[in-house]
Each structure stands twice: as C-alpha cells, then as structure tokens.
Amino acid sequence: EEDDHMEFCRVCKDGGELLCCDACPSSYHLHCLNPPLPEIPNGEWLCPRCTCP
C-alpha cells in the first residue's frame, strides 16, 4: 500500500517520527502541534488544517 503523506513536518519541514492526518497528506511532529500532543492519539486523527472551520 502506497502512503501519500508528506515525509516531513508541515510546521518545521524536518523528517522523523510524524503523525499523519487521516483526511489529507499533511504530517506533523507531536511537539510541533499547537497545543503539542503528549502521545500519538488512538483512532482517526485530523490535523489543524482539516479541523479548522
């Protein structure tokens, strides 16, 4: 299965362990989110761009 998510964080543009949005190709480091997440959430996760009205 091919993964179309970005291979770098949308905020800092660095690679590493990234959290991928379930609705778009964006990826983020947990510490780059505002507010930062302490751990990878269970289940579906939507990035700030997808949850913003």
Rank of each mutant, 00 (worst) to 15 (best):
S26T: 11
E2M: 02
E17R: 06
N42K: 07
C9D: 02
P41H: 11
C12W: 03
E2V: 08
S26N: 15
R49W: 09
C12Y: 00
F8Y: 12
A23H: 14
E39I: 08
E7L: 08
P38Y: 15
Y28R: 03
L18G: 02
P38H: 11
N34W: 06
E39V: 12
P41C: 08
P48A: 05
S26V: 12
E44R: 08
C32A: 01
P48V: 05
L30N: 10
L18D: 00
C24H: 14
L33A: 07
G43I: 04
V11G: 13
P25N: 11
D14G: 13
E44A: 08
P36A: 14
L19E: 04
C9M: 00
E39W: 02
L46H: 07
C50N: 02
P41V: 13
D3L: 13
N34Y: 07
C52Y: 05
C20H: 09
C21L: 00
D14L: 07
N42T: 12
K13F: 03
G16A: 02
L30D: 11
V11D: 13
F8V: 07
H5W: 06
M6A: 13
P25W: 09
P25H: 12
D14F: 07
M6T: 14
A23D: 09
H5S: 06
C47M: 00
C9Y: 00
G43L: 07
C50F: 01
D4E: 08
S26A: 13
L30W: 06
P48L: 02
D14Y: 03
D14P: 00
P25I: 10
N42W: 07
E2P: 06
G15M: 07
L46V: 11
L19D: 04
C9H: 00
P36I: 14
G16F: 09
P38C: 02
F8D: 08
E1C: 00
Y28G: 03
F8N: 12
P38T: 06
L18P: 00
L37W: 08
L30F: 09
L18H: 15
D3V: 14
H29G: 01
E7M: 04
C52G: 12
L18K: 00
M6N: 14
D14Q: 06
C21W: 00
P36N: 02
C9W: 00
L30G: 11
H29A: 00
D3I: 15
E2T: 12
N42H: 10
W45F: 02
D4C: 15
H29I: 00
G43H: 07
P35R: 05
P35C: 04
C24D: 01
H31M: 09
S27L: 10
E17W: 03
P53H: 11
C21I: 00
R49M: 12
R10H: 10
E17K: 11
C20Q: 12
C21E: 00
R10S: 09
D4V: 07
C24E: 02
C52W: 07
K13W: 05
D22P: 11
C52F: 07
L19W: 05
H29M: 00
P41K: 11
S27D: 05
E7P: 04
K13M: 07
L46S: 13
C50V: 02
C24R: 04
K13G: 11
P25A: 14
E17I: 08
P41R: 11
H5C: 04
C20G: 14
D3G: 14
P41D: 15
T51Y: 07
Y28C: 02
P36D: 09
C32P: 02
S26Y: 11
R49I: 05
C20M: 11
N42A: 12
E2K: 07
F8S: 08
T51A: 09
L37C: 05
T51P: 09
C24T: 03
H29C: 07
C52D: 15
Y28P: 02
L18V: 13
P35S: 06
C21H: 01
P48Y: 07
S27C: 10
E39A: 11
C20N: 13
P53G: 08
C20V: 11
C32W: 00
C32N: 04
I40S: 10
C47S: 02
K13A: 12
C24S: 01
C12T: 02
G43S: 11
C47N: 05
N42R: 10
I40D: 03
C12Q: 00
S27T: 09
M6C: 09
C47I: 11
R49H: 06
L19C: 04
P35V: 07
N42Q: 06
L33D: 04
R49T: 14
S27K: 05
L46E: 10
E2Y: 04
